[in-house]
Nucleic acid binder design. Structure first.
Length: 492
RNA sequence: CGGGGUGUAGCGUAGCCCGGUUAUCGCGCCACGUUUGGGACGUGGAGGCCGCAGGUUCGAAUCCUGCCACCCCGACCA
């Protein structure tokens, strides 16, 4: 059991902060709103990256890199996009410092080094990328362009929380260009499927695929598709978005191509991204009052081996056996850490790895060597069993699979339990207040109603789910006709 | 950016209201010894610009002003 650790039920945000801290995932830096991602946290992000990168490449995308800075004139070209991000942009105005005569040893901005045109630190890269694409595209033969970049972006948020909302964050942003509207929409949806697939199979996090309402839409998009997940405090988290941009950016940057019929047309576009926010989603989906819980598919190491011994001679025998097991496991592609440090006691290590969410812990001691047994403990259920050493690799493989699916099922059950239907506004408010979670309710489709509900309850439309059936009903707020339920929730 | 709160050793804290010896305690850290199957114990030791800057005072962790950071609630946030 973790010592002095806050419970989720008592103080959820405190619990979250403590996990991030104590599991060595990240910490606040000397820069306001910016985090240092620590090695253990970064290792999880790298696993995410590797898998997503693979999925993007399997579907024909390639990586490239575009500049961090966007000249203001380019940034403002797509009006809605610029307007949407204007309030949270970091701006570079000068390119040089000089010695401050009044304060020896200090530097100050050299006013003579003012930039003629300010540079915006990218909050997203559509502008610089579409400016570039203009030079790449003349004919339908140049299309499609399927490019992704792994990058950092800056959004000057007022209130930040590690991983969930930081001023600088890491992400991938895909930017594609197509000859037809259909192709661009297909791309947008295909990426959404990749995101959902990744969330479910790797993060063990169930998500709902949907499309955003107009007010929640990405600035500059015609449609924003999203995956929405439910956290353990009943709040929703937008885990990824995929935007159909229509011809907005092509028009803003004058990107035309000649089609097969010899006519000029504007290029169709999509953009899509997931960020280090997924780390926050991962933490909040599975972790418990004993610390972090990681799904085997994303854990930096899936199994930790801990030797138990008294004397030097026992240590050697135990470690020898553990090394053998490590080799066998690794041959099957299982990632293993053997912690043979003699600076910490077994009990200390048990607590440490439990807190860090390592899916499986294997302990081996002198007694086991005699009896041919081995102790395996799983993090998700905290169950501990002494097993026969034979077929250990197969047992571990099964257990890892089992943990992965168990975590998904647990999260899915929780979401199921926290998903409600509301047919009246009173019912809606009651559920929000007493239970939280996702609420399926009818909505008249107007931004006014959406805004009113948000003002009065803090709940927003998370998405219009893609897979839900059409169903006649009346808007819970206005009583006007509605053809489909949408999902409301309080959100991060 | 508005309201509330916090900032003292790596972490958590006492002291602050009511200024006055050498800034309290626990965890952690270091050394030695005993230990090692769920966060060991003993003895000794190191570690402090009391968030930063200025002011009041003979004297400031303590009072005043400004700033910074963090936490909570808002506003803001695809």
């Amino acid at each position: 059991m973790a010592k002095d650790f806050p419970k989720r039920s008592e103080d959820y945000s405190q619990w979250y902060n403590e996990i991030v801290n104590r599991a060595d995932l990240a910490e606040h830096s000397a820069v306001r709103g910016c985090m240092v991602i620590k090695p253990y946290g970064y290792a999880i992000w790298e696993k995410m990256q590797a898998q997503l990168d693979k999925m993007f490449k399997e579907t024909g995308h390639t990586n490239a890199y575009f500049p961090l800075f966007v000249p203001k004139s380019l940034f403002e070209a797509e009006e809605k996009n610029a307007e949407g991000f204007a309030k949270e942009c970091a701006v570079v105005t000068h390119y040089r410092l000089k010695n401050d005569e009044d304060n020896p040893g200090k530097l100050k901005v050299d006013e003579n080094a003012k930039l003629e045109e300010e540079l915006i630190v990218r909050p997203t890269s559509e502008a610089i990328i579409w400016k570039t694409y203009k030079g790449w595209i003349q004919s339908y033969r140049d299309l499609p362009i399927l490019v992704n970049q792994w990058a950092n972006v800056v959004r000057w948020e007022m209130r930040t929380r590690l991983f969930l909302r930081t001023a600088e964050f890491l992400w991938q942003e895909g930017h594609t260009a197509h000859a037809t509207k259909k192709e661009a929409i297909d791309e947008t949806k295909m990426i959404l499927d990749i995101y959902a697939d990744f969330a479910q199979r790797f993060m063990a996090m169930p998500v709902i695929k949907g499309v955003k309402s107009e007010t929640e839409r990405f600035a500059g998009a015609l449609d924003t598709y999203c995956i929405e997940a439910l956290m353990q405090d009943g709040k929703a988290l937008q885990a990824g978005t995929s935007h159909f941009l229509g011809q907005n950016f092509a028009k803003a940057f004058d990107v035309k191509f000649t089609n097969k019929e010899g006519k000029q047309d504007y290029v169709w576009a999509s953009s899509w991204g997931v960020s280090t926010r997924l780390m926050g989603a991962l933490i909040m989906t599975h972790s418990d009052d004993n610390g972090l819980v990681l799904p085997p598919n994303l854990a930096p190491f899936q199994v930790v081996l801990i030797p138990i011994y008294r004397k030097e001679e026992e240590f050697e025998k135990v470690v020898e056996k553990l090394k053998e097991i490590k080799t066998q496991l690794e041959a099957k592609g299982i990632s293993v850490k053997l912690d043979d440090r003699d600076t910490h006691k077994p009990g200390w290590k048990f607590a440490e790895y439990e807190f860090k969410g390592v899916p499986l812990r294997i302990a081996l001691g002198p007694r086991d060597l005699e009896s041919g047994t081995i102790e395996i403990a799983r993090r998700d259920t905290l169950e501990k069993h002494s097993l026969d050493q034979s077929d250990i690799v197969t047992k571990v493989e099964h257990l890892l699979e089992n943990i992965q699916s168990n975590l998904y099922n647990k999260a899915a059950d929780y979401r199921e339990e926290m998903t409600h239907k509301a047919d009246t506004y009173d019912e809606f408010k009651n559920i929000l207040e007493e239970k939280g979670g996702f609420i399926y309710a009818h909505w008249d489709g107007t931004s006014e109603t959406e805004e009113q509900i948000k003002q009065e309850t803090k709940a927003t439309i998370r998405c219009i789910p893609l897979d839900s059936k059409l169903e006649e009903g009346k808007c819970i707020y206005s009583g006007k006709l509605s053809k489909q339920r949408v999902i409301f929730a309080k959100a991060y």
